[in-house]
Structures are given as structure tokens and as C-alpha cells.
Write a protein that binds this DNA or RNA. Structure first.
Lengths: 190, 190
DNA sequence: GTAGTTTTGTGATGTAGGTCACAATATCAG
DNA sequence: CTGATATTGTGACCTACATCACAAAACTAC
């Protein structure tokens, strides 16, 4: 399935767009390819775009001064990623987005997203829905952090991203769970 | 300042609505008063509305089987609260929303919100913006949970809700921070 | 006011998970 | 295939925070 069809199916699941509307919508996206390990958004830099994943896997994360990494999200195909705080507020990135595996994405600029939202009501509706899902997911994860221990969060992660287990280094799983890699290593066989 | 003026100022800060548009928007809200401790949304029940706080303070929280409480949000004046997962998906509430203090709110039904979003493009734009802020805030709190200890989170909370300290029992502060009340008590004077 | 309930402080003790160190594997480039 | 690099497993020890228990305040309702 090609890029256009993947995006179209993703959008149509939420908001019906006419073919003309979708063509117009799609014309604002730019395809990009990245190699494994490439950085798409770097902390301290301006953030102009968000990214819709077609193939591969991205991660967005925060790195502390001591070099510790905390993963906010893995972005699998049909997921979106960016530093949304920076993108919306026009501030510099505080997080990094890079490639866990080689990836193909569609890039949309923040300015074009706002323009599309203004011009096409259904597009704004789509983005409202999408952000909403993200909000609810973030709250659930927050709750999980508050009342589940590392092992429970690990099991939730496998539910949420079943494909992930074989694809990404365990270090990254640990960074998503918010535990040390040593602790994660001890979780799966006592 | 009356209810209408408070809401109007809040909305105008994000999205300019004409007076006619705002009157129409406002006509879908119902004022409600609650006493301290009253429950607005209860787990297991259907959720039909969201709530805009005019005066007082609400909290939304999750309670575990063991009776532990974890606070997702304190809702101060001009904040919104509901069980958004339930409201959007039409499922039963998994969280509780109740009153930390006596409160006055404006109530909007989920159905009316969707109707307004369909009818008035600027309203949809407002709600997209609002959810976005919530999403970014939830991600920041998530990060804070991952790499800050209890004392640091406590200091962040005082930044975010300076008024809160004198208004709500410390137990609730602890439930927001995700620590036991004993630990919180030991934090502020080592 | 006084009695009852709720909220807070403080000590003693237990535990999940962090940190450091080093060995055992994978993975990758040439 | 071979050395170099990155990733994992495992032990020893440490620390932040939970839990339990009980005392001291602080609100509430008569």
C-alpha cells in the first residue's frame, strides 16, 4: 500500500473526507526517508513539522543532564510524532525524535496544519480527535505510573505494542517503563 | 464577574467568536452548584457532560480496589473537568470527579459539544486547542514522574497551583504527587 | 464550649528498584 | 572471519519511599 492510501485509510477511519478534500490535504505532506538512528528533531532546535509514520519505528524521548533517557512514545506505522509542545508554542525542542529502525514518514508543517484546519473544517475535526486520543492515552499512562509497579507496566507495554518486543533493544523498553535496564532484565524470569 | 463573562473571556483568549456565535455557544451550557464533597461523576456510571469551573475546586481521581486514590487533576476556575475517556467513547466512568470545595460550574453535554463543533468551526478550533494543552501538560507530568523524585514533584506542584496549598488537605496533595501522605509530611522540613 | 471525626506528624521497619562493577553475548564493519 | 562496539545478564550494596502504629492537632457538629 502506498503512502497516500495509508494516510487516507487512517484519516477516513475518523473523518470522512471527499476525494478532492483528501487530495488537497495530502498535497501538503512531504515524504521523507530516514536511516536507523537518524535524528529528526533535536533538543534546542526549532520544530517546524510533525511526522506521520508509514514504515518503521520512531521514538520521542527526553534526555536529562546526567544523560538518562526517558521515552515518551514509540511511533509505529500510522502513528504521529513530533515535539508538540515546541510545535504548538513555537518554542525550541526539549525532546528528541529519532529512528529506532529505518523509517518512512510523511512530514506536515505546523503552519500547513493550521492552514488546513482553517480551510477544511473536517481536517480540524480530525486533528481534534487525534489529539484527544493522545490526551486520554497520556492520562492512562500517568495513572499506570502512579499505581503499577515495573512488572505491571511491562506487561501493559507488551499489550500496547506487541510488535515492539522483537524490534527494539531492551534498554529502550526500560527507558519507556521508567526503570533501569538492570531492573527490567530481572523482571522477566524470577 | 458573571458566568457568561468568565467563559467568554476564557474562550476569547484562544479563539475570537462573534457575540452572536458566543451567545449561541453559551446557550448550551447549564449552571450548576455543588457542595463541598459532592460527587459529580462516579465510576461505573455513564458520563454525559464536561464541566467548566467558575468558582471553587474540583478533583478528578482514580481509586484502586485497595482504596488508594490517585489524583489526575485539580480543576480550578476556568479549567475543565470530566472523565474524557468515558465521555468520548461513550463508556462508563472509570474515574471520579468531585468537589474539593463548594463549586459553581457550567455544564456542557458531550452531544452538544459535538453539535457545536460541527456547526461552528471556531468552536471546534477552540476545543482542539484546549485538548492540545491538556495533552502537552499530561506529557510533561509524565516526564516529571519518570525523572523527578517526590520533593521535586512537590515543588512543581506548588508552581503549577500556588493557590492550592492553603485550600486542600495535604492528603490530596500526596495523592496528586503519587506518594503516601507520610512521605509528603516528611518532605517539607528536613 | 465538648465530643467526635478527620487530618497531620513521627518513629520503626520493610522492600522495590537504583547504582556500580564486571562478565557474557550480540551486532556490525571491514 | 575477526576485531570492535553495543547490548544484555547478574551479583553486591544502597536509598527513596511504603507501610504500620500511634500520638497530636485541627475541624465539625451539636
Amino acid at each position: 500500500m502506498n503512502a497516500k492510501a495509508i494516510l487516507q485509510e487512517h484519516v477516513a477511519r475518523i473523518t470522512p473526507l471527499s476525494n478532492e478534500q483528501f487530495d488537497y490535504f495530502f498535497s501538503h505532506f512531504t515524504p521523507q526517508s530516514y536511516k536507523k538512528g537518524e535524528t529528526i528533531i533535536a533538543p534546542g532546535k526549532a520544530v517546524g513539522h510533525e511526522y506521520f509514520v508509514l514504515h518503521g519505528c520512531l521514538k520521542s524521548f527526553y534526555r536529562t543532564d546526567q544523560g538518562k533517557m526517558f521515552i515518551l512514545q514509540f511511533a509505529m506505522p500510522t502513528w504521529w510524532a513530533s515535539d508538540y509542545e515546541a510545535l504548538y508554542n513555537g518554542t525550541r525542542a526539549t525532546t528528541t525524535v529519532d529512528c529506532v529502525t529505518a523509517a518512512e514518514v510523511l512530514r506536515l508543517s505546523g503552519a500547513d496544519r493550521e492552514k488546513l484546519c482553517r480551510e477544511v473544517h473536517a481536517v480540524e475535526s480530525f486533528f481534534r480527535w487525534r489529539t484527544n486520543r493522545g490526551y486520554v492515552a497520556a492520562q492512562k499512562r500517568l495513572l499506570s505510573f502512579m499505581h503499577h509497579d515495573a512488572r505491571q507496566r511491562y506487561e501493559e507495554l507488551l499489550q500496547l505494542y506487541p510488535q515492539l518486543y522483537n524490534v527494539v533493544p531492551k534498554q529502550l523498553i526500560a527507558a519507556y517503563l521508567g526503570v533501569s535496564r538492570e531492573t527490567l532484565s530481572r523482571l522477566y524470569q524470577p
